[in-house]
Simulated assay, not measured.
Amino acid sequence: MSVLSVAKKDFLDIRRSKSVWIVSGLYALLVVFLFYLGRSGTSEPNVASQLSALASVGLPFIPIIALMMVYLAIAGERESGSIRYLLSLPNTRRDIVLGKYLSRGAVGASVILAAFGVGAVTAVLWYPSLEPTVFAGVAGLTVLLTLAYVSVAIGISAATGSRSRAMAGSIGFYIVSTLMMLLPTFSIVAALKYVLNGRLELGLSDHLFEFLRMLSPTIAFRKAFPLVVPSDIETFMTNGDPSAPAYLAPEVALVILVAWLVVPAVFGLWQFNRADLG
């Protein structure tokens, strides 16, 4: 077997999962619901505004979709013992990690693109213009966010040896990187700011702490959003302060988001290579 063989087998397995179909359907329904609401109460419904609303309302759900589909990809096989069967074939540990990453990433991207496909149909039917450039940009950025959390989940799954640890790691990462970051006053960054500026009185710049928040894939997605929406959509213009330094620019946020596609999976592979599977 090889990376592609592992990916093909895993893709066939995961596509039969009821949870994948359920979350796919729910996200597609959310897309339709928001586009339906967007055409009500206004004579000139705007696709870009609804895409911004979708990104805002749907943002907490994207990581859930990715983490649910992926967190047991390797940890589940290690706990059941089937990982030894995979390794008894001409597979390396690298083949397993990369193959699982490719298959789960393909499923996650397909879920998002299918939902946006439904959204495109409703936009054509209900809105004056599809605004295809904006639509494609938001869809692509959302796929990047999904793949970032697929990478995180693969990394956690590869680095842990049991279902319970993989679940705990995924839930913990979701809380820290998404829920707490979307509520910045309750985040780790806020606690760090309180200690460094409030208690130690170091007087560090607010921009520095905002950059630390941007290291979260969820916040990096929000910061990169101005790259794909018109400038008059202010909901996500999070770098609108003219005094903000260059490291808070949307382009930097996009680079951070892309880095999340690689770093967690590489870390998971490194830990998986060191693990005793006997």
Rank of each mutant, 00 (worst) to 15 (best):
Y127H: 13
A114E: 05
A114Y: 02
T133G: 09
F116T: 01
V97N: 05
K100C: 03
V124C: 08
L113E: 14
A114P: 01
L102Y: 06
P132R: 10
V118E: 05
G105E: 12
K100H: 10
A114R: 00
G105R: 01
D95V: 03
T133I: 15
P128A: 10
L102A: 07
V107I: 15
A106L: 13
E131N: 12
V111K: 00
R104M: 02
T122V: 14
T133S: 14
L130H: 11
G108C: 15
D95W: 11
L113H: 05
E131I: 12
G99R: 04
G99S: 14
S103K: 03
R104N: 04
A106E: 07
A123Y: 07
F116N: 01
I96L: 15
T122C: 14
V97A: 04
G117I: 07
P128V: 05
V124T: 11
I112C: 07
G108M: 11
S129C: 14
P132V: 14
R104Q: 12
T133H: 14
T122L: 15
G119Q: 00
S103Y: 02
Y101L: 15
V121F: 07
L130K: 10
K100W: 04
L125R: 10
L125E: 13
P128H: 08
V124A: 11
A120C: 06
G105N: 09
P132A: 11
L113F: 12
S103C: 06
R94N: 14
A109H: 10
W126N: 02
V107E: 02
V97F: 03
E131G: 10
G99Q: 07
L98R: 05
V107N: 01
R104V: 02
E131P: 07
G108T: 06
V107A: 15
G105I: 05
I96K: 02
G119D: 00
L125C: 08
T133K: 09
L113Y: 06
F116I: 02
D95C: 09
G119C: 00
S110C: 11
D95Y: 11
S129F: 13
G108V: 09
I96R: 01
A109T: 09
T133Q: 15
A120T: 05
L113P: 04
V97R: 04
L102R: 00
S103G: 06
A114G: 08
L98Y: 08
V121C: 01
V118G: 05
A114H: 01
R93W: 04
A120S: 08
R94W: 10
